[in-house]
């Protein structure tokens, strides 16, 4: 039992050959301060195929396991809703998670980042797969040039502003992690798209275990990627949660039955009970 297992069938190497040359850097890499002319920057996104989600919750639990998510909160959940009159009753499932928003057209800063008192913090460098460098600003909550909205718990002061500011309510305090800058408080936490996994070329945990392949992860900047093709084929640019919030979410939904609007249960102000995975 002490041999390292190396699967013969390799997982899709998401980092290989990704990215397109960024021409108008600010348009594609919003929030970045400088982009080297030749750097190819990925834009990680998720496409959710609602036709294929069977409400099995393997993603919810795989996420708990991957990220040691404590009880009482989640990094991804399935919302479900029963509609219609018997016998023409339907039940729908909706996987939701952090939308890794791009932020509005004007400033390209997601609302959670905007309210973070520690943002903009120190200058950071993002290295691309081809060795290019992109400069950006860090914070307790910040957006990386590859589109991931991340938390640095060491910089967090535990103020909770980002938790309140997220229109999707996908953030919570982690009872097991202290805010780095205020040890009396807990740090904010949320989906980080399994950043260590994707750094190693492995799909996020929820994607890895999704039976129906309802969750598809990849680089939107790579026109040959499955996600780029799906976004184009199904015209998904506007098939996102709460487009009216102007947050520019990067979790897209394939929704041919047009159920997204009726299905999604929004957060109530100051509450997070929409973001609990609970089978009725």
């Amino acid at each position: 039992m002490n041999k390292i297992y190396k699967p013969k069938i390799g997982r899709r190497n998401v980092l290989k050959g990704v990215g397109v040359t960024v021409a108008g850097a600010t348009a594609l890499v919003a929030g970045a301060e400088t982009v080297e002319a030749k750097a190819t920057v990925p834009r990680w996104v998720m496409v959710m195929d609602l036709r294929k989600c069977i409400g099995c919750r393997a993603c919810t639990v795989a996420c708990k396991s991957e990220n040691d998510v404590s009880l009482g909160r989640f990094r991804t959940v399935i919302q479900e809703k029963t509609v219609g009159k018997f016998p023409d009753t339907k039940k729908w499932f909706l996987p939701i998670m952090c939308n890794h928003c791009e932020g509005n057209e004007k400033d390209g800063i997601p609302p959670c980042v905007k309210v973070c008192p520690e943002y903009p913090g120190k200058r950071m460098t993002f290295k691309t797969a081809d060795g290019g460098k992109v400069r950006y600003r860090g914070g307790a909550t910040y957006k990386r040039p590859d589109g991931l909205v991340l938390i640095d718990s060491e910089l967090c002061i535990g103020c909770g502003k980002c938790i309140d500011a997220c229109p999707y309510g996908v953030r919570s305090f982690n009872p097991f992690v202290k805010a780095g800058k205020d040890q009396t408080k807990q740090a904010a936490d949320k989906c980080d798209m399994c950043k260590e996994r994707i750094a190693n070329g492995i799909d996020p945990s929820c994607v890895n275990t999704c039976q129906g392949r309802a969750r598809i992860f990849g680089d939107l900047n790579d026109p040959n990627s499955e996600v780029a093709k799906l976004v184009k084929e199904h015209n998904l640019a506007k098939n996102v949660l709460l487009p009216e919030e102007d947050t520019n979410p990067h979790v897209f939904y394939i929704d041919p039955d047009n159920i997204l609007k009726d299905l999604y249960k929004k957060r109530e102000k100051g509450k997070l009970d929409h973001y609990v995975d609970l089978i009725p």
Partner: peptide, 25 residues
């Protein structure tokens, strides 16, 4: 034991695992 995942080389499971399987930990 940190994590369980489907065996990608299995012709039965095709690398997938359900919620109960994931909770084996």
């Amino acid at each position: 034991l940190k994590k369980l995942e489907g065996h990608p080389g299995s012709i039965r499971t095709l690398g997938k695992l359900c919620a109960k399987g994931q909770a084996g930990v």
